[in-house]
Amino acid sequence: MSYYYESEYAVYRHLLNRTQVSPNDVFHLSRTKLLKDDSSPTHLTEGQMEFTFWDFNYQDSPRTRIFYRVKVRSDGSYSLSLNCIFGLIADSTKANPATGLATQINKQLLYPWHRAHPESGGIYLSYQPAEHIDNAVDLLHAITQLLDESIPLIDAAIAQMRQSFPSKPAPRLPQAPLPDTKSIPRPCMTAY
C-alpha cells in the first residue's frame, strides 16, 4: 500500500489549517526523495517531504536554511526532524551571519542536536524528536508539538542574530491568499 501520497496530503492540510489560524505561519512544502514500487509506476513505497517557514537569501552563505523533514516509510511509520544548515563563506575574515545564526539557534533551542560538518563546509544540525511514529494521527500531533515549541525560539534566534547583522534578514515566508480548504483535491496518483 502507498502511504506517501496520503501522508503528504495530511501534512499539507495540517499545515494549511495552521496557516489559517496563524497567518504568519506561511509554509513551503516540497518532496525531496521518493521510492517507487517496481510493480507500479504510480505506487510510492517510501518518501520524504520538507517544509519551512523562513526565507534565507544570503549571498555570502547561500546554503543557509532551516526546515522540518518528515520521512514516510513503506510500513506506514514515520520520523520527524528539525534540520538547520548554515553555509559558511569562503572569506574567513568576514563576519558570517550563518555562523551567528547557528550560535543563536544553539542558545535558544536546547535540543540534543546531531552535529555534522558536510564536506562542502558549513554546519549541519539535526534534531529528531521522534525516530519512530506509528501512524498519521501521531505524526500530526508530533508536528504540532515541534512547531509550537521551535518556531518562537527560532524567530527569537533570528532576532538576536539580526542585532549583529542588521542587513541580513531572515524573514518568514510572505503571506499569500489561502486557498479554500474545501476545494483542495486529494493528490492524484497519476499526476506525480
Rank of each mutant, 00 (worst) to 15 (best):
S2G: 04
Y4N: 02
E6R: 06
Y9C: 09
Y9F: 10
Y9L: 10
A10K: 04
A10L: 10
H14S: 09
L15A: 04
L16E: 05
N17Y: 03
N17T: 04
R18G: 07
R18H: 03
T19N: 11
S22G: 01
P23N: 08
N24P: 05
D25Q: 15
L29D: 03
R31P: 00
R31F: 00
R31A: 11
K33Y: 01
K33D: 10
L34K: 04
K36C: 03
K36F: 14
D38M: 09
S39I: 01
P41E: 14
P41Q: 12
P41C: 12
H43S: 06
G47M: 07
Q48M: 12
Q48L: 12
M49Q: 07
F51Q: 06
D55L: 12
N57M: 11
N57A: 14
D60W: 06
S61P: 00
R63D: 09
T64S: 13
I66F: 02
I66D: 02
F67T: 02
Y68L: 06
V70H: 01
S74C: 02
S77N: 12
S79H: 02
L82A: 08
N83H: 13
F86S: 04
G87N: 01
I89Q: 12
D91W: 02
T93N: 13
K94D: 00
N96C: 15
A98H: 01
A98V: 01
T99P: 00
T99D: 08
A102N: 11
I105H: 05
K107G: 01
Q108N: 11
L109V: 09
L110I: 13
Y111A: 03
P112V: 10
W113Q: 06
H114Y: 06
R115Q: 11
R115L: 13
A116V: 03
A116Q: 14
S120L: 09
G121P: 02
G121Y: 06
S126F: 02
Y127V: 03
E131W: 12
I133R: 08
N135Y: 03
N135H: 10
A136V: 14
D138R: 08
L139C: 04
L140R: 06
I143L: 10
L146A: 05
E149M: 09
A156L: 14
I158A: 10
Q160T: 08
M161D: 05
R162M: 15
R162Y: 01
K168S: 15
K168P: 00
R172Y: 06
R172L: 15
Q175M: 14
D180V: 06
D180P: 02
S183D: 09
I184H: 05
P185E: 09
T190C: 01
